[in-house]
Simulated scan of single mutants.
Amino acid sequence: MASLSLQLRDYRLTVAEILYHMPDHPGLLQSFVWQEMDIAPRYPVLRKFLTFWERELDGKLHSVKVASNPLITPAAYRFVGADLRLQ
């Protein structure tokens, strides 16, 4: 139920692929996939997570790719070109 209330407030499913340098081997990159409900285009939840990452974790960030998609969208509709009557 919490997810639905977030979606109604314009939160959308957000996925981020985070590439970071491994602490023991800085020349190697490791991938981490993060998924959460967030608001595009500001992404406050993702920014909070990345701030935590930089402050608390040893792996230095290399890059972040973000994709998001609204889960609740207006219904698709089309007009029917015929009127059928049954008697």
Rank of each mutant, 00 (worst) to 15 (best):
Met1Thr: 12
Met1His: 09
Ser3Asn: 11
Leu4His: 11
Leu4Tyr: 11
Leu4Trp: 10
Ser5Glu: 08
Ser5Ala: 02
Leu6Arg: 01
Leu6Pro: 07
Gln7Asp: 10
Gln7Lys: 14
Gln7Gly: 09
Leu8Arg: 15
Leu8Pro: 03
Leu8Asp: 09
Leu8Ser: 03
Leu8Phe: 10
Asp10Met: 07
Tyr11Gln: 04
Tyr11His: 12
Arg12Val: 02
Leu13Glu: 14
Leu13Asp: 12
Thr14Ala: 04
Thr14Trp: 03
Val15Gly: 07
Val15Ile: 10
Val15Pro: 04
Ala16His: 10
Ala16Arg: 06
Ala16Thr: 02
Ala16Met: 05
Glu17Met: 04
Ile18Val: 15
Ile18Tyr: 06
Leu19Phe: 14
Tyr20His: 15
His21Pro: 00
His21Tyr: 06
Met22Cys: 13
Met22Asn: 14
Met22Ala: 14
Pro23Ser: 05
Pro23Thr: 08
Asp24Thr: 14
Asp24Cys: 05
His25Thr: 07
His25Glu: 12
His25Gly: 03
His25Ile: 08
Pro26Ile: 00
Pro26His: 03
Pro26Ala: 00
Pro26Val: 01
Pro26Gln: 00
Leu28Lys: 15
Leu29Phe: 12
Leu29Asp: 11
Leu29Thr: 12
Gln30Tyr: 13
Gln30Cys: 09
Ser31Cys: 13
Phe32Arg: 15
Phe32Lys: 15
Val33Cys: 11
Val33Trp: 07
Gln35Ala: 13
Glu36Phe: 05
Met37Gly: 09
Met37Trp: 00
Met37Gln: 08
Met37Ile: 02
Ile39Glu: 05
Ile39Ser: 01
Ala40Pro: 11
Ala40Gln: 02
Arg42Val: 01
Tyr43Asp: 04
Tyr43Val: 00
Tyr43Asn: 03
Tyr43Met: 02
Pro44Leu: 06
Pro44Trp: 01
Val45Arg: 03
Leu46Glu: 05
Leu46Thr: 00
Arg47Phe: 00
Phe49Thr: 03
Thr51Phe: 10
Thr51Gln: 15
Thr51Leu: 12
Phe52Ile: 03
Trp53Phe: 01
Trp53Ala: 05
Arg55Gly: 05
Glu56Trp: 05
Leu57Thr: 10
Asp58Phe: 08
Asp58Ile: 08
Asp58Glu: 14
Asp58Asn: 07
Lys60Gln: 04
His62Asp: 13
His62Glu: 14
Ser63Phe: 04
Val64Asp: 09
Val64Lys: 06
Lys65His: 12
Val66Gly: 04
Val66Ile: 15
Ala67Glu: 07
Ser68Lys: 06
Ser68Gln: 10
Ser68Leu: 00
Asn69Lys: 12
Pro70Asn: 11
Pro70His: 11
Ile72Cys: 13
Thr73Arg: 15
Thr73Glu: 15
Thr73Val: 09
Pro74Gly: 03
Tyr77Asp: 07
Arg78Phe: 13
Phe79Cys: 07
Phe79Gln: 12
Phe79His: 13
Phe79Leu: 10
Val80Ile: 13
Gly81Asp: 12
Asp83Cys: 08
Asp83Trp: 07
Asp83Leu: 08
Leu84Arg: 12
Leu84Pro: 04
Arg85Phe: 12
Arg85Asp: 09
Leu86His: 13
Leu86Cys: 11
Leu86Thr: 02
Gln87Lys: 15
Gln87Phe: 12
